[in-house]
Lab assay of single mutants.
Amino acid sequence: MASQGTKRSYEQMETDGERQNATEIRASVGKMIGGIGRFYIQMCTELKLSDYEGRLIQNSLTIERMVLSAFDERRNKYLEEHPSAGKDPKKTGGPIYRRVNGKWMRELILYDKEEIRRIWRQANNGDDATAGLTHMMIWHSNLNDATYQRTRALVRTGMDPRMCSLMQGSTLPRRSGAAGAAVKGVGTMVMELVRMIKRGINDRNFWRGENGRKTRIAYERMCNILKGKFQTAAQKAMMDQVRESRNPGNAEFEDLTFLARSALILRGSVAHKSCLPACVYGPAVASGYDFEREGYSLVGIDPFRLLQNSQVYSLIRPNENPAHKSQLVWMACHSAAFEDLRVLSFIKGTKVLPRGKLSTRGVQIASNENMETMESSTLELRSRYWAIRTRSGGNTNQQRASAGQISIQPTFSVQRNLPFDRTTIMAAFNGNTEGRTSDMRTEIIRMMESARPEDVSFQGRGVFELSDEKAASPIVPSFDMSNEGSYFFGDNAEEYDN
């Protein structure tokens, strides 16, 4: 783990906690998980779902989305002020799938948001429990990260689609708070800032007046979040320049895209947490497990152990491969979309394939898809080993990566060399080191050039047997250095459309 220093740990961010010791953190995270579980059980009762239907990941996603929508204050306010045809701002819903006479049927349900809020609060001892809501947002974000390569979004903001390893959390809503900021990748933060800068260039009043003052505060806050992700002084200094700019424009845009590229080699610290679907927490609570009393951590053995003992089902389209669908969801559960496939294969105990080789589309089923041909199958979400999630980018030494994705962002704290394609990355730096950030740029390029592919990161860190909950005997895996390590390699994943 990167030293926490003055930073709060993510469990504290996750639970809005002030400084807590490890036991208190485990208890408050457990409380959050228990609340999600209780809410899910109650919703299944309301909807009269069978046990099997309640364990269907598509039903879980609909129920999670309903509660997130019920608590989305800004959108609710907007919907009330701008009524649109056929949208009731006070209601929320989605597809629920039921097994009827041996076939899967889709039923569109509609609930009062007020009623959903009441059920959620009741499951969370009367609190709004925003930490639990954020947790579900991060699960949705991790699922998107594993399912889609955001080529269009990258290109629109002047970045290269091969930089997708920097895009963790790119679909997280803005209201996801400190826990959300911690899991956002460098590219995601750059993209958010670039969008602001572009608006400022096109709209003279963007930075002016009372609204402009708020915009400015948001801009500086985002700059500080991004600065905190960088691990070298030169990158941090460049972020200070971007933040202090009187009138952010093209120079800042250039600096930010430069920094994003540099992060492929001088990786930023991005938190990883295993956020599971509500249909995993519900049955665990129903079986009598007391998360608050037992304590829970999002970055240790607990999620692995929970998945070892969970039964989750998914709808499967006619030509999809259930094992591939399982891999997709497994990666999402562990926030591992940008991790090295060699490491993932070792931990999972079966070969993890790149996205383009998977015969599976996303987990969600569109409303126009034919239910007649839908089957369902068990998702295999178990693992051979477990490993500690990392909050750091690993040290800054790398190795060759593949054509589709030119770097990785480690999820697990496991000893290995970190793949990246130096030639491709360095070719993108057209040696432009003039301007006010020239000395920093020169320094950053120097550090990137001296990074050695064969150097090892996370020295001495290994994986653990599932029986080793105290992480007492690390097993340090050895990897084939020459092997392909990137998930979005030469990829044809669908595009994420909101």
Rank of each mutant, 00 (worst) to 15 (best):
G5Y: 04
T6E: 01
A27I: 15
K31A: 15
F39T: 10
C44Y: 11
D72Y: 11
Y78K: 04
E80P: 00
G86Q: 14
P95K: 07
Y97G: 00
M105E: 08
L108H: 15
L110Q: 11
N124W: 05
T130C: 01
L133R: 11
T134M: 00
M136Y: 05
N142K: 13
R150D: 03
V155A: 13
D160Y: 08
L166C: 05
M167R: 05
T171N: 15
R174W: 11
S176G: 12
A182N: 09
A182T: 14
V186G: 01
T188R: 06
G200R: 09
N205C: 10
M222W: 06
I225D: 08
K227M: 06
A233R: 04
A233S: 05
Q235C: 04
K236L: 09
M239Y: 01
D240G: 09
Q241S: 07
S245D: 02
N247G: 10
N247M: 03
E254S: 03
L256A: 11
T257Q: 06
A260K: 01
G268W: 11
C275L: 05
L276R: 02
G282H: 08
S287I: 12
D290L: 14
D302V: 08
L306K: 00
S310Q: 14
P318Y: 14
A323P: 09
S335V: 03
A336W: 03
A337K: 03
F346E: 01
R355V: 00
G356D: 03
T360L: 10
T360H: 05
V363C: 15
A366H: 03
E369I: 09
N370A: 03
E372L: 07
T373C: 14
S376E: 03
L379F: 05
R382D: 13
R384L: 14
W386G: 10
R389T: 07
T396L: 12
R400P: 06
I406F: 04
Q409M: 00
F412N: 09
L418V: 15
F420L: 08
A427C: 10
G431K: 01
G435R: 07
T442D: 02
F464N: 07
F464C: 07
S467P: 07
A471I: 01
S473A: 04
S473K: 14
S478W: 14
Y487I: 06
Y496R: 02
